[in-house]
């Protein structure tokens, strides 16, 4: 179990915010930190991994205290050994794919894990390539398996898929789920993509101005259990258009735009850019191969 109790004054682009955060994460869970930019999500991850020092508070992982401002305990990032996947991947440009993974090996660690991870991430053919020659999705896979070499118990993913196109995201989400289960990880993800969050995580914490304002299991959090829909998708409102007495709302789901009819009161609830859930329960959807 991970218990965080963190206080820190952060200076962000939008001014100063006082981060004051209490979080408990069960072992083995896949947890998402959700919220606007500058809410303190990345800072929380950096404090957990030891890259940023909280002003005060405690960090306890299992029975070990990683940080305690009163007892003057502050483990270095080297001692915490958290698997951290950075938003910019942070691959070492001077090393090949295989060397990037080998660098992460601990003293006297069995080297067979390198081959195993390369194979898992389908990077075998690329192992001699330098990071600059890889595509975004390939770099992401290298960064992910590199973070796993030292067999961490905690995996931190800071918006790992935000720079990738939809197809690649879906593929990598599969990898993330597999990795989480296969290596018994406690995984903490920062993401803005509701579809991704619903697919991957068990619990969601929403941060705003440095505090948790909403939390719950993923289904509760997004209200997914309220509709027992036959099919449902999450998407983004692109356009709200009035046609006579009705309104037509265009929603982007994946790469497709669909149109939903709504009345005036319903339409007033939405604005362009809203994340919405589109579901149907009265009709049986048609399914056919394409």
């Amino acid at each position: 179990m991970i218990s965080l109790n963190l206080k820190k004054t952060l200076k962000s682009a939008g001014g100063k915010i006082d981060l004051n955060l209490q979080l408990t994460i069960e072992k083995g869970q896949f947890v998402t930190l959700f919220g606007e930019s500058g809410a303190g999500k990345t800072s929380t991850l950096r404090m957990l991994s030891g890259l940023l020092r909280p002003d005060s508070g405690t960090i306890k992982v299992g029975e070990t205290i990683w940080f305690d401002s009163h007892k003057n305990i502050d483990l270095k990032p080297q001692q915490r050994k958290v698997g951290y996947v950075f938003q910019d991947y942070a691959l070492f440009p001077n090393m090949s794919v295989r060397q990037n993974l080998e660098y992460a090996l601990q003293k006297n660690q069995d080297r067979t894990i390198i081959g195993e991870l390369l194979e898992f991430a389908e990077l075998g053919e690329l192992e001699q390539r330098k990071p600059e020659t890889l595509s975004g999705g390939q770099k992401q896979r290298v960064a992910l398996v590199r973070a796993l070499v030292q067999r961490p118990e905690i995996l931190i993913l800071d918006e790992p898929l935000s720079a990738l196109d939809l197809k690649m995201r879906i593929k990598l989400q599969e990898y993330l789920l597999q990795v989480h289960k296969k290596y018994n990880l406690t995984t903490i993800l920062v993401s803005h993509d509701i579809g991704e969050i619903v697919k991957l995580s068990d619990r969601v914490y929403e941060l705003q101005n440095g505090s948790v304002i909403k939390k719950g299991t993923t289904t509760d959090f997004f209200g997914l259990n309220k509709t027992s829909a036959k099919f449902r998708f999450s998407g983004e409102v692109l356009k709200i258009q009035r046609e006579d007495v009705l309104y037509v709302i265009s929603v982007l789901i994946g790469n497709d735009i669909i149109k939903v009819v709504a009345d005036r009161t319903e339409a007033n609830n939405f604005k362009i850019g809203d994340q919405v859930l589109v579901a149907s329960k009265a009709f049986n959807p048609i399914i056919q191969k394409i």
Partner: peptide, 24 residues
Amino acid sequence: TLKEASYTMGKSKMTTLLKVLLPN
């Protein structure tokens, strides 16, 4: 993030300097 990634892998400041920072 290059040096931070190295630190989270348990590598010392010296190792990070010699193997990651200077070669780049």
